[in-house]
Design a protein around this nucleic acid. Structure first.
Lengths: 205, 205
DNA sequence: CGAAAAATACCGACCGGTTGGTATGGTAGC
DNA sequence: GCTACCATACCAACCGGTCGGTATTTTTCG
C-alpha cells in the first residue's frame, strides 16, 4: 500500500507462507485449511507465521491479492501488444484461459472464486475484498470490449460491462463444474461458446 | 421437561435438522457450519442429530439431495405443460430462474454450488454426489434442447449437452458473482444473454 | 383384546483431539 | 542495545462424535 515496499529485503518465509496458503486454500478452501498445515507446507513454524501475518484471515486476504496479481500478470502477457486489434486481443486472452486449465499442473481452481463462494456470505470483509478483485477483472474486460466497439461496427448495441460480468461468471462457473466433474474440457467448450457469442456482437465477428 | 408445545403433533426432528443444515450451509458452507449450530437452529439436541444422521458429512449429503429435489420440483413447475413448444418451456424456465433470485427471501445461493466449490477438491465422496446432481440437471436441459431441435430448424449444429453445461456453468458462476457483489441483477443479465445465445442456435430465435 | 418386548426417537453430559492465537525467549545484523 | 525474524511451549475455546439413559411408539404374542 505504501510506496516504499518491503520487497527488496524480503526473506523467503513470508513468500513461502503465501505460496502454501494459496495452494492449500485453492484445494480445500479457507476453513478447511489450518494455520498449522500452512506452516508445515511452507516449512516454517507458527512463530514465523504470526510474525508476518496477524491472523489467518490476514493471510487469506494477502493470498487473494497475490493470486490476482499473478493472474493479471498472465492475462497481460496473453493479451499481447496493446496496439493490436482489441478483438484479437480478447481472442488471445480467451485462448490463454482455455490453455491454462489444460496444463496438467494447473488444476482448474481459482482462489478468488473459492474464497468468494465460501466466505462472501458470512465474512463481510472478505466479501468486499473479493468483490473489488472481481470488479477489477471485469472492468478490464469491459475496457477491451469498449476498445473493440470503437474499431469494429457493433452489430447490435451491448453493455460492455454486462458482457464482462457474463464472461467472468461463466469463467467461475466453468471452473466449479470442471473441478466437480474432474474434466477441464467443459471450460474450453464454454469459452468457445462465449467467443461465438462475442462474435455475434460485431458485424464481422 | 417443559410441556410439549409441539412435540405431540409429530414435528419430525429430521426435517427440521435438514432445513437448518440447508440454510446454514447455504450461508456459511460446510466447514463453517457446526453440528451444534445446526441443532440449535433446528431446536433439537445433539442426541437427535446423531440419531438421524451418522455424521456431519451424512447430513450434508442428505441436504444436497433434498435441496436438489426442491429445485427440480420448482423447475418442473416453471417448465409447465410438457406438450408445449420446448423452446417456450426453456424460456419459461430461464425466466423462472431470473425471478427466483429476485425474490427477497431467496438469497442467490445454491447449496449444490456451494458444496461443490468447497468440497469437490478435498472430499471425493461429496465430489461424486455433487457431480451426479450437476449431471442430472444438465441432462434435463439437454433433453429440452434436443426436443427443441426436433421441432425447430437449428440454424447451425450444436451439442445440446454442451449447451446444457454452459447454462449450468453460467448459472453457478452468476450466483457466485451475485453473492459476492450483493447484486442479484447480474444473474438476470447473464441469463438474458444466455437466452439470446440460445436464440442464435435456431432459425427463428 | 392387552401386556410384554422391542424398536425408535430423543436427551445432554462428556471426551479426545484440533484450532487459532499467545507468551516468551533466542539470535543475527546494524 | 534495538529491531526484525523466527522457534518452542502452551492455552482456552471449540469441534465432531460417543454414551448411558429415558420417553414414546410399534410389534409380538398369549
Amino acid at each position: 500500500m505504501v510506496a516504499k515496499t518491503e520487497t527488496f529485503s524480503n526473506p523467503p518465509a513470508r513468500d513461502k507462507l503465501l505460496d502454501a496458503a494459496i495452494g492449500l486454500m485453492r484445494d480445500r478452501g479457507y476453513n478447511a485449511t489450518t494455520v498449522d498445515h500452512i506452516c508445515v507446507e511452507a516449512g516454517v513454524t507458527k512463530g514465523a507465521f504470526f510474525h508476518h501475518f496477524k491472523s489467518k484471515e490476514a493471510i487469506a486476504e494477502a493470498a487473494v491479492d497475490e493470486w490476482c496479481r499473478r493472474r493479471v500478470a498472465r492475462y497481460t502477457e496473453d493479451l499481447g501488444d496493446p496496439s493490436d486489434d482489441p478483438l484479437a486481443r480478447i481472442d488471445r486472452w480467451l485462448d490463454g484461459l482455455i490453455e491454462s486449465v489444460r496444463e496438467p499442473v494447473e488444476r482448474p481452481v481459482c482462489l478468488l472464486g473459492m474464497l468468494s463462494q465460501e466466505m462472501a456470505g458470512s465474512n463481510s470483509r472478505m466479501r468486499t475484498v473479493c468483490q473489488a478483485k472481481l470488479e477489477g477483472w471485469t472492468g478490464l474486460v469491459a475496457q477491451l470490449l469498449d476498445a473493440a466497439r470503437r474499431i469494429h461496427a457493433p452489430r447490435r448495441d451491448f453493455d460492455s460491462l454486462q458482457i464482462g460480468w457474463m464472461l467472468n461468471s461463466l469463467w467461475q462457473g466453468s471452473l466449479l463444474v470442471a473441478k466437480t466433474r474432474r474434466d477441464p474440457e467443459v471450460v474450453a467448450n464454454n469459452l468457445r461458446h462465449a467467443k461465438a457469442y462475442i462474435g455475434t456482437l460485431f458485424a464481422n465477428g
